[in-house]
């Protein structure tokens, strides 16, 4: 068993065209590191140069925004699903 990461449509080209990737780790941060280790091209699309998540990239553990949990240190288990969703906004 592994943690499932759902990949949003715009990042699929950098994740072997897969809609989900199975990763390992005990925290969300470790899981994301496992993800970019498997698919290095994803790194620049997820993380800024300072190593932090890009401002418009939202990461959820199941139904919770990790910003309101323990961010990268949020514990994750094999029954969890991590979702990556870039923000959607705009206006005139």
């Amino acid at each position: 068993m592994a943690i499932k990461v759902l990949i949003p449509t715009p990042l699929r080209p950098y994740a072997g065209k897969q809609s989900s990737v199975e990763v390992t780790g005990k925290t969300v941060g470790e899981a994301l590191n496992s993800l970019v280790a498997q698919h290095p091209e994803l790194r620049k699309h997820l993380f800024a140069e300072d190593g932090k998540l890009r401002s418009f990239v939202n990461v959820y553990l199941n139904d919770e925004d990790i910003r309101y949990l323990e961010r990268d240190s949020t514990p994750a288990t094999e029954t969890d699903t991590i979702s990556i969703v870039p923000s959607v906004a705009g206006g005139v």
């Binding site: 759902l6 949003p8 449509t9 809609s19 989900s20 939202n58 959820y60 139904d63 925004d65 699903t81 979702s83 969703v85 923000s87 959607v88 906004a89 705009g90 206006g91 005139v92």
Partner: peptide, 23 residues
Amino acid sequence: NRYHISPAELVRIQREAALAGLD
């Protein structure tokens, strides 16, 4: 003159779409 969709709503929609084999 502005819109924003809750990321929580996007997460739910993305998850349900994946279950249906859609994007």
